[in-house]
Design a binder for these strands. Structure first.
Lengths: 258, 258
DNA sequence: ATAAATATGATAGTAATACTACTAATTAAG
DNA sequence: CTTAATTAGTAGTATTACTATCATATTTAT
């Protein structure tokens, strides 16, 4: 009898536990690689089957559809993040240091092979940065949510929020700050690479350099927020705006209708 | 000859300007409504054609594919935001007030019918909040970007970033803060409705109430950041983490392989 | 060692999606 | 009024996202 280290993932996401069989593990391993290579929309079970020399039907025995497989991979990532945070903050009692460690873990793509050999977490992280938001930005979130598809993400946020609250018990938005840290980290890594005018970070030299920039920025953001001065809280602006109505842009010439 | 107020949108996004014909305007109008109703993945040109009693081929004459139509709608939204910001900050010289006005405009779903009658901007805003991120989170961003599909979003961010810089010329991340404000506004509106454990805001009473909460939070965030104290900038934590390698979770019993 | 149970593979088929080519109808210009 | 140009509709193809069936291989229990 061989024992395997497993990542615990919501069973609603699969029909059959892919971690328990060789084929299942190949499905996970190569779906990560293939999604990274061709993108989530181009990815499908037929291509994956061809790649791992399996039949399409076999993959459907593990996952109901591509979306479930994708959310499964995201859960893997979230669970991995939670485990890394717990592992690296076990001995850290100071919440300031703990938050720094958390930020480093969020941006850091290194430290792969942590426990599970058949998933390349660095590539999984790339997928999360590029397409992770698609897991919950769709019409059927509520159904997915009621099946617990996002529990791991919520636990990850709450883990971070707890540290924020320890650091500053009267901070009014610990959960929103936690989710903003994660989303902002991923967005700025992505923007620096693909839409550089949406960020101030420069992809320039190397991979690690960009991670350091994101880390520095997030530390700056969280520190400024968490050490806020109560004098900064300002009254909201009046809701009465846009009373004057003017056309946006008027085009003559080309835009005549017939 | 009738003159129409038009929103200027990158011609690479369409094969034929939909604002110039009755059918084109119906395509825009009802794609917004239909995407809101059934979601972007369920939406297709056949369903849209059926709804507006046109042929599928006719829609393909305006837009190469669903993705281009979707990005077109997002550009509409971005242009609309730029126009609203410009309109409402024309007489505002104080950057603090200007930033407040900008934040209100980002969260505010009201003020529809501003200039173009055939697009329901409130519903468009709903679409942006739910699925906007999908426009640039995919494998082919770079191609899209080189065709200028995201220029409007960049201009919107730069408009906000300029105000941030005016307010605090030495602020190190004006562009990142600008994009974070937009993304955080949308995320928290979405989370409050669908994944409430990821935010501290409560959807509770009414639509407007939630907008006010997001507005208050974003003002708090930006104000705290922009009025940061240089003492808050802290040294990054050492990169040496995760030297101790332990398994994440060990499961006995159920997880024996055969 | 063998039967039963389970896992995988091969094949085929359906419904929907994402387009394309071709033809008909409408509109504008002279 | 006629012709050219534009615009719309019909019908078709390739791909996707599955599902069902049956055969075969592998594992497990006895």
């Amino acid at each position: 009898m061989t024992y395997f280290v497993q990542v615990q993932i919501n069973p609603n996401l699969y029909l059959k536990n892919p971690q328990e069989t060789k084929l299942g593990r190949r499905i996970i391993e190569h779906s990560v690689l293939l999604i990274d290579e061709i993108g989530l929309e181009q990815f499908n079970f037929k291509k994956l089957a061809r790649r791992i020399s399996a039949s399409e039907a076999s993959i459907y025995r593990y996952f109901e559809n591509k979306h479930h497989l994708f959310v499964y991979l995201l859960n893997w990532y979230w669970e991995w993040m939670i485990a890394r945070i717990n592992l690296n903050t076990l001995n850290v009692t100071d919440p300031v240091t703990r938050l720094k460690v958390i930020i480093r873990i969020i941006v850091d793509t290194a430290n792969k092979n942590m426990a599970i050999e058949f998933v390349d977490e660095e590539i999984l992280h790339k997928i999360v940065v590029r397409e992770g938001a698609k897991a919950y930005h769709h019409k059927l979130v509520d159904e997915d949510n009621s099946e617990g598809f996002f529990l791991a993400y919520k636990r990850l946020c709450e883990l971070i929020a707890t540290t924020i609250t320890e650091l500053r018990p009267d901070f009014p938005y610990p959960k929103a700050l936690a989710s903003t840290i994660i989303e902002t980290a991923n967005n700025n890594l992505y923007f620096a690479r693909h839409l550089p005018r949406l960020t101030d970070l420069k992809k320039g030299e190397g991979e690690d350099d960009l991670n350091d920039q994101v880390e520095t920025m997030l530390e700056f953001f969280t520190t400024s927020l968490v050490h806020y001065d109560k004098r900064n809280i300002i009254a909201p602006v009046s809701k009465k705006i846009e009373t004057s109505r003017k056309p946006i842009q008027v085009m003559n010439g080309a835009n005549h209708s017939r």
